[in-house]
């Protein structure tokens, strides 16, 4: 049942976006957060929390804008791939020293890295546009210059498509030896080394995968906004990724997207009913989740899954 869930999420997002056209932008932003949260979930499966992965999202957004300024004719789809590549490269470099740290050291070093990026982007305004960021015109998407409404629809459909592909790729990664070793990293790193697997190498691979997903998210986020700002890399965004990952659960890749949809509705609700109390809302929900459902929403689906398979037997 969990296998068809990515299709369901994609279809739900497209349906909601077409039926309520005002929901297109929040949904695309929500799904882009889902990709980043999926990156964070990979690390949570290894027992590590990063409070700085928004740094990768932000950096990739800027890299994408740089590419757009150099080749103004470039297609949106290629821009998204470029941002993913930027995430991959950045993760490959930063991961080289992050793979040595665990626990709070890991979380805080990631935070430090993203804060350095955040303040540098704000300070060097002649290159980065300072805290206002850089805005850009809508690029071509799928070979055509679209008006705002069609552009968003196309982007939403692309996102839904990416959700299905990414879920299947990440599930394959989870099932691979490296993916299995990542879980072992959480339960006992020393034993992992005893059976001849390098914990650092395994963690490095997971880290690069997570940074790539965040880069991907940064590209989509920047494309729908038409703007990149240092704010994208602020620690609050990193915290929101962690929130989504925990809300959805890390048992299956689709959890991040279930969490992302839940997060989008929670955000819309909070904006309408509790203006200015966003952090209070996600903080309280997070606390309740930790005590009531530490494995996230996807764990319930899994329970349901098991029951039906038992019934069939």
């Amino acid at each position: 049942m969990l296998r068809i869930f990515p299709w369901f999420i994609g279809a739900l997002a497209i349906f909601l976006g077409l039926y309520f056209s005002w929901m297109k932008t929040p949904l695309i932003i929500g799904l882009s957060y889902g990709f980043a949260a999926l990156g964070v979930s990979i690390l949570i499966r290894a027992g590590q929390v990063s409070f700085g992965h928004a740094g990768f999202t932000c950096m990739s957004g800027y890299a994408m804008v740089a590419a757009l300024k150099i080749w103004p004719e470039i297609d949106g789809l290629i821009l998204i791939l470029i941002s993913g590549l930027a995430g991959l490269i950045a993760g490959g470099i930063v991961g080289l020293f992050m793979m040595r740290y665990r626990g709070i050291f890991f979380g805080m070093l990631n935070l430090a890295m993203s804060m350095v990026l955040f303040s540098l982007l704000g300070k060097f305004y002649h290159v980065t546009g300072g805290t206002d960021g850089i805005s850009f015109d809508r690029p071509k998407l799928l070979g055509q210059l679209l008006d705002r409404s069609n552009y968003e629809t196309a982007l939403l459909v692309l996102c839904a498509f990416f959700v299905v592909i990414t879920c299947s790729l990440v599930q394959r990664f989870y099932a691979s030896p490296t993916g299995q070793a990542l879980i072992a990293l959480k339960s006992n790193e020393v034993r992992l080394e005893y059976i001849g697997i390098s914990a650092k190498k395994v963690f490095y691979k997971g880290y690069v995968a997570s940074a790539t997903l965040c880069g991907f998210a940064g590209g989509i986020f920047a494309l729908v906004q038409g703007l990149v700002t240092p704010e994208m890399g602020y620690w609050v965004s990193s915290g929101e990724y962690v929130f989504i990952a925990v809300l959805g659960g890390t048992y299956h890749a689709v959890g991040a997207f279930i969490g992302a949809i839940g997060f989008t509705f929670l955000k819309l609700f909070a904006a309408a009913a509790m203006t200015g109390a966003w952090q209070l809302v996600i903080g309280s929900v997070l606390l309740v989740l930790i005590f009531v459902a530490p494995n996230g929403l996807v764990a319930w689906l899994r329970k349901f899954d098991r029951k039906t398979s038992h019934a069939q037997k």
Binding site: I44, G47, F51, Q279, G283, S284, L287, I290, P294
Partner: peptide, 28 residues
């Protein structure tokens, strides 16, 4: 005292949640 027995990820997240709540309370 309720998270002492949990694993490290959950402990970090719980205090992080407290931090988020306190940031907004401070603003209020």
């Amino acid at each position: 005292r309720r998270i002492l027995a949990m694993d490290e990820v959950m402990q970090l997240l719980a205090t992080f949640a407290v931090f988020l709540i306190m940031e907004d309370l401070q603003r209020f």
